[in-house]
């Protein structure tokens, strides 16, 4: 499914996971400031899959509808970043970030805005960290909130998709004793992924040196 030139090696995957971890850690500290409470974010695994596989991966795990925050990015590698939650989890997240003192109606009213803001913090941190660690710069669009199932979010169409690939990251949130799970997905075309892979190799060479 995955073309060879963009197949990530174990080490490249580790490096990318680590970079994203830095990003989500930054996002966690930003959120901590917003919420005034301990927020832990971590990325245990990462995968490169096709769009339809990504859609299936999500729908296999999440039976309910999904909510996603979307941001497009461009630079040496371009694509679209998605922060995805099961719909039921999104309200939990909103309650967490709004301090839990709002009524149910208020939470619903706030949901869209709160989600957009949370998504912005997390995705921005991730992308900015990636750009920073890989010594490149990226520009990002403003966040957008989407709802739907896996196939809709990954724009899988009847003709079998456009052959794009998805960098799929599973993230664990721990916010004030609430278990919230979510996913970060980065849709990129093959040239962009190939560029990312090259940049990762540069980064690894810099960090590991003679041990590699």
């Amino acid at each position: 499914m995955t073309p060879e030139q963009v197949e990530l090696s174990e080490l490249e995957r580790d490096a990318l996971t680590e970079i994203v971890n830095i990003g989500v850690s930054r996002a966690a500290s930003s959120l901590r400031k917003m919420i005034g409470d301990q927020v832990l974010l971590s990325v245990p695994s990462i995968e490169v899959v096709s769009q339809s596989r990504a859609a299936r991966l999500i729908s296999e795990r999440e039976v309910v509808d999904l909510v996603a925050v979307r941001q497009d990015f461009s630079g040496p590698f371009s694509g679209r970043a998605l922060l995805i939650f099961p719909e039921t989890n999104s309200l939990e997240l909103v309650r967490a970030v709004t301090g839990g003192e709002l009524s149910a109606e208020e939470v619903l009213e706030m949901e869209h805005e709160a989600l957009a803001e949370t998504g912005n913090v997390i995705l921005n941190s991730c992308l900015a960290t990636m750009a920073n660690m890989l010594r490149r710069s990226l520009t990002m669009t403003i966040p957008e909130v989407l709802r739907g199932n896996g196939a809709m979010l990954f724009e899988v169409d009847e003709r079998g998709g456009n052959g794009g690939l998805v960098l799929f990251l599973y993230i664990d949130f721990a916010v004030r004793m609430r278990d919230i799970r979510g996913y970060i997905a980065m849709l990129m075309d093959i040239p962009s992924l190939a560029t990312l892979k090259e940049l990762l190799d540069e980064f690894i060479a810099g960090v590991v040196g003679d041990d590699a």
Partner: peptide, 18 residues
Amino acid sequence: DRPRIRIAVAGMLAGAAL
């Protein structure tokens, strides 16, 4: 295991939380 751990530590030094 060394390269793997070097990368992880590099992440910590750059601001990763855990």
